[in-house]
Write a protein that binds this DNA or RNA. Structure first.
Length: 435
DNA sequence: TGCAATGATTGTTC
DNA sequence: GAACAATCATTGCA
């Protein structure tokens, strides 16, 4: 703009192609001032100037340069320029209003967060080692057997990260180069066209927006690649390993000893998880699967049920015998008196019948009590087996899941979270007294 | 190699 | 949010 003003001031009253331009022909009334009585002549002048502008490219370079210079030096150029700037500013406002103050794109934020979480963007933290380790823990893997696969995963993730950063750098470089180029171009053109610095800024922001949309595509592609990699390497279903025999044993023991209400509490699940070296969610999965599959095909599980019931019954008998001995030793004169936190230990054969009526709370604080309660289920199971529960269909029918309701659900499953583990420690809540 | 068993996931229901 | 039911994907065995 300074250039233009300077040039305008230094070349007053230049004529254009033989037309006198003095007098402000072709200008709007407010620029034109006192002139303009002759409307037709004015139109003619405007037409001539426009024609010259349009045909300037057909002329020789020198001639064109000379005319361009003459136009630039026209004394009315500043006035015309300001009018054009004003018009552009007005039309530009509506566009700018729609474009400015855009909220941050939620999708872009989501992608950024994800890339950060996966260790693709942001500071490198072992190339997703944390994610791999977390996935390993979730899948219940032992760690050592998955090490090779995890290193493979990390290597692939690292590759993705590298490609991402290279591409990002390229985009940024290209963006900067293009922005500089456009800015130079606009600055150059601002000598002859009404381009304000604000407009240049706006143009730069448009370029940045375009490039950021390209960046978003890159981020999206990277996220997809990471997801595919994750599903390929870390999908737990692909990494499924059967539980150890001992773990299955422990879980089955619990299940069949709590067949009346096989819904372990959170504490029980934790205890089982610890015993089986698996996660709590794996315990939940196991019980979920077991309940469904047991219910679907009770006949198939009869043998297994009998096996575990007998096994648990033996344990129960031992535990009860020990408890009786212990109780007698502690209070030889009053064997049935209830000491704090303990329970009555009947010394006759109907002890299990009595136990059925015990409220779970009465066991609190007693490890023996906790064990006994769970074993009562098993003993009842055995009692049922030996006490005429048979329907005469042979050994496989000895045991019937008495707590399965007609519609296939466990009748007492309304408060599953309060069931206790056979191995749980003192302080646990016991309410597996559905019978 | 086919198939049953089994651990995990997903969608639905309460 | 837990449980259920269906389903998937893998394992292990005959």
């Amino acid at each position: 703009m300074d250039d233009q003003s300077r040039m305008m001031q230094t070349h007053p009253g230049v004529s254009l192609a033989g037309h006198s331009v003095q007098g402000g022909m072709g200008l709007p009334p407010h620029v034109q001032g006192h002139e303009g009585a002759d409307g037709d002549g004015r139109k003619q002048d405007i037409g001539d100037i426009l024609h010259q502008i349009m045909t300037i490219t057909d002329q020789s370079l020198d001639e064109a340069q000379a005319k361009k210079h003459a136009l630039n030096c026209h004394r009315m150029k500043p006035a015309l320029f300001s009018v054009l700037c004003e018009i552009k500013e007005k039309t530009g406002l509506s566009i700018r209003g729609a474009q400015e103050e855009e909220p941050p794109d939620p999708q872009l934020m989501r992608l950024d967060n994800m890339l950060l979480a996966e260790g693709v963007s942001g500071p490198e933290k072992g190339g997703g080692a944390a994610a791999a380790a977390a996935a390993a823990a979730a899948s219940g893997g032992s760690g050592s057997d998955n090490t090779a696969e995890h290193s493979d995963y990390r290597a692939k993730l690292s590759q993705i990260r590298q490609i991402y950063h290279t591409e990002l750098e390229k985009y940024e470089q290209a963006c900067n180069e293009f922005t500089t180029h456009v800015m130079n171009l606009l600055r150059e053109q601002s000598r002859t066209r009404p381009i304000s610095p604000k407009e240049i800024e706006r143009m730069v922001s448009i370029i940045h927006r375009k490039f950021s949309s390209i960046q978003m595509q890159l981020k999206q592609s990277t996220c997809e690649a990471v997801m595919i990699l994750r599903s390929r390497f870390l999908d737990a279903r692909r990494k499924r390993r059967n539980f150890s025999k001992q773990a299955t044993e422990v879980l089955n023991e619990y299940f069949y000893s709590h067949l009346s209400n096989p819904y372990p509490s959170e504490e029980a699940k934790e205890e089982l998880a610890k015993k089986c070296s698996i996660t709590v969610s794996q315990v939940s999965n196991w019980f979920g699967n077991k309940r469904i599959r047991y219910k679907k095909n009770i006949g198939k599980f009869q043998e297994e049920a009998n096996l575990y019931a007998a096994k648990t019954a033996v344990n129960a008998a031992h535990a009860v015998a020990a408890a009786v001995q212990n109780s007698q030793a502690n209070s030889p004169t009053t064997p049935t008196s209830g000491s704090s936190g303990s329970f009555n230990l009947p010394n006759s054969g109907d002890m299990f019948m009595n136990m059925q009526n015990l409220n779970g709370d009465s066991y609190q604080g007693s490890q023996v009590g906790a064990n006994v309660q769970s074993q009562v289920d098993s003993l009842r199971h055995v009692i049922n087996q030996t006490g005429g529960y048979s329907d005469g269909l042979g050994g496989n029918s000895l045991y019937s899941p008495h707590s399965l309701s007609a519609n296939g659900g466990w009748q007492d499953a309304t408060t599953p979270s309060s069931v206790t583990s056979p191995t749980e420690g003192p302080g646990s809540v016991h309410s597996d007294t559905s019978n």
